[in-house]
Design a protein around this nucleic acid. Structure first.
Length: 658
DNA sequence: ACGATTTTCAGCATC
DNA sequence: TGAAAATCGT
């Protein structure tokens, strides 16, 4: 299949900066991979091409597509998330950021803990939340603590700036950075040092940025610093799919491109290769209600497809049952797999009713999103052990596991140890290895600490020769972590799950170790950036929020909970936020390739009480001619019950057959 | 210091 | 409604 004219123009434009406004399903990933291939064909060494994405998943997918297209050349490409790129810069230029090699990358949880300790005692959660948000905003504006202090406009801002300073001081002491620093510190280094900037600008001769509309201020400046005057880059994005403003994404970065590079060329990709004609017309009509600086009209050469149906249901249980019944019917009539079906919703809690209905119907399902492997306490504990082995100054890791499993080292001991460590400018783990510090503590406490320190020393010696996964297994065994799980968790299923999680982590580490390069420090740094969810390729209906469906496509899509207050969400009252809700609904609609089902209920249980609700205003923005609105239909429900029963019997027969 | 009970609160979620 | 945090009672 060849490229269409717009795609070709995007691929072959080399003369100056390019912004590709890629509509939903317009073959954006294809353009990116083709462009990489084209650049290589034009004589760009693959090692000097850089493609930036936002998620590890997107990076992995792009790497796969590039490998399929470019074969061996793909290995030399740099395909990386913004944060992994920042980490790479920071590892290479650690001293510019005042870091020692082998620094730690703290995840959100650990950095919050640090912040909490530095905030005034007894601070209200609201205030803490605000402070954390503000510190993060300051960092994403590229400000350092001194600049933040200068810019502080009121007493609250001043408090935030002071907290930022204390926090950053602690991070330096820990030889640690947080996620925001992975952008901010390389950016500060590049912006302040011209020769450094020149060096990195020469390192990559051409840049590609995916999902450009999701960039925040700091990411934009990083891109600008790397691209430099010559503007050798292609940014690919879709302003109509900008749904992360609440997370700091700044759509104004689109306009900023044209300001900073007047030679910017804009190419629109408007042919959609994904959605049936009807679905696309509905999506176009909806998004036309938004203010749009670069209006696009998507068109599709695909057939119209089946009608788009709108179900009015009694309540959300009824809604879930009807949607599930429709999926059963759709599967039977179209012969699709369960995994061709997705049910999308606005908020995670809406999954519950669907889950119940699917379980009742014995249909396999898979809930995407939610908790990743790296959110589990046991995995975080295990990583903390490795971090501490790799980096004795990692106080965060030390505090996390010094008493897990129990070593009779309580808060009082740690406070004393902290004091002593601070006085001689050592980390907690280092202080625990000093006789002088130990002598100042009660005998029982110092004995426990000394024993722990000794164990650490042994692991550290092992770490030189042993791969991380075996080392981890050894550590967990020696501290009897299994026993700790046994004691702390009463539920046997939970215990099983925890052990499995640890095993999964070990396999990930083994995978990393097999790929070779890097010591334990590099490895723990890299792992802390992962948040991969194991997406087994099972044949199951996908349940997910619209946000997590972005970038995906399914033959059959149901969107539930289309009620005012749910979608658009209550909290999006002011117009600007309704626009983003509308884009979100636009994203939801354009996930569907063939079949689209929309549903809303007339009553909804909300915070315990039941209330009546009206259909989403977005439904009225869709062209009525493309919709089949259906109320309750007892006859159809009866049909569906029969279909469900048949489905049960089929499954039973299949089970017995095996 | 811990487990049981009461109160509170409610969005999406990347690295 | 239900989960998580806060508080109570030992």
């Amino acid at each position: 299949m060849s490229l269409n004219p717009a795609q070709r123009a995007a691929v072959e434009h080399l003369d100056g900066p390019l912004l590709v406004l890629a509509g939903a399903g317009s073959g954006k990933t294809r353009v990116v991979t083709e462009k990489l291939a084209w650049l290589v064909a034009r004589g760009f060494p693959p090692g000097e091409l850089l493609a930036i994405t936002f998620t590890n998943k997107a990076a992995r997918e792009m790497r796969e597509r590039a490998a399929a297209r470019l074969r061996g050349d793909a290995e030399a490409l740099t395909i990386s998330t913004f944060h992994a790129l920042g980490l790479r810069l920071l590892q290479a230029e650690a001293r510019f950021a005042g870091l020692r090699p082998g620094f730690t990358v703290l995840d959100a949880d650990d950095s919050l803990k640090a912040l909490k300790e530095l905030a005034p005692a007894g601070i209200s959660p609201d205030n803490l939340y605000w402070l954390r948000q503000t510190v993060s905003t300051l960092k994403n504006a590229g400000m350092d603590p001194a600049q933040a202090l200068q810019a502080a406009a009121g007493p609250r801002e001043l408090q935030a700036a002071e907290l930022y300073g204390a926090y950053q001081k602690r991070m330096t002491a820990w030889n640690a950075v947080d996620f925001d620093d992975l952008i901010r510190l390389p950016l500060a280094a590049l912006e302040s040092d011209e020769s450094l900037r020149g060096r990195w600008q020469r390192r990559w001769r051409y840049l590609m940025v995916d999902e450009y509309q999701d960039t925040n201020g700091a990411q934009y400046r990083l891109l600008k610093a790397l691209a430099g005057e010559r503007g050798a880059f292609t940014a690919v994005g879709d302003d109509d799919q900008s749904i992360y403003a609440w997370r700091g994404a700044d759509p104004a970065n689109l306009a900023r491109l044209a300001q900073d590079w007047p030679a910017l060329r804009i190419v629109k990709l408007e042919q959609n290769y994904r959605c049936a004609g009807r679905i696309l017309r509905a999506a176009n009509a909806l998004i036309a209600n938004n203010p749009r600086p670069h209006p696009k009209t998507l068109w599709s050469a695909l057939p119209d497809g089946p009608p788009i149906r709108v179900l009015a249901c009694r309540d959300n249980e009824h809604e879930a049952q009807r949607v599930v019944a429709e999926l059963v019917g759709r599967r039977q009539s179209s012969g699709c797999r369960w995994s061709d079906c997705a049910v999308l919703y606005r908020g995670n809690h809406q999954a519950r009713a669907l889950e119940q209905a699917l379980r009742l119907a014995a249909i396999p399902y898979q809930i995407a999103g939610g908790d990743s492997l790296f959110d589990c306490a046991e995995v975080r504990d295990a990583l903390a052990y490795l971090r501490l082995v790799a980096n004795p100054s990692d106080d965060g890791a030390f505090l996390r596991i010094v008493n897990v499993p129990r070593r009779e080292i309580g808060a009082t001991t740690l406070e004393r140890l902290g004091e002593l460590a601070g006085r001689v400018n050592l980390s907690l783990a280092q202080a625990a290895g000093q006789d002088a510090a130990l002598a100042a503590l009660p005998a029982r406490a110092s004995a426990g600490l000394a024993a722990f320190e000794q164990q650490l020393g042994q692991w550290r010696r092992r770490a030189a020769s042993e791969p991380a996964d075996t080392l981890l297994a050894r550590i967990l065994d020696e501290v009897d972590y299994a026993g700790h799980i046994e004691r702390s968790d009463k539920n046997p299923d939970q215990r099983q799950r925890r052990l499995r999680n640890l095993d999964a982590l070990r396999q990930i580490l083994a995978g990393f170790a097999r790929h070779g390069r890097g010591g334990l420090a590099e490895l723990t740094q890299a792992v802390s950036l992962l948040s991969e969810r194991d997406q087994a390729d099972q044949d199951a209906v996908r349940l997910m929020t619209v946000h997590s469906a972005k970038g995906l496509e399914f033959r059959n899509v149901a969107i539930v909970g289309l009620e005012d207050g749910t979608f658009p969400h209550d909290a999006a009252q002011d117009e600007g936020r309704v626009d983003e809700e509308r884009r979100l609904f636009y994203v939801a609609l354009t996930r569907a390739k063939e079949w689209l089902l929309l549903s809303h209920s007339l009553r909804r249980r909300r915070y315990g009480s039941i209330e009546a609700c009206t259909p989403s205003r977005f439904l009225d923005e869709l062209p009525a001619a493309e919709l089949h609105r259906e109320g309750e239909d007892p006859e159809r429900d009866a049909d569906h019950s029969r279909a469900l029963a048949r489905n049960h019997l089929d499954r039973l027969a299949a089970l017995l057959g095996d």
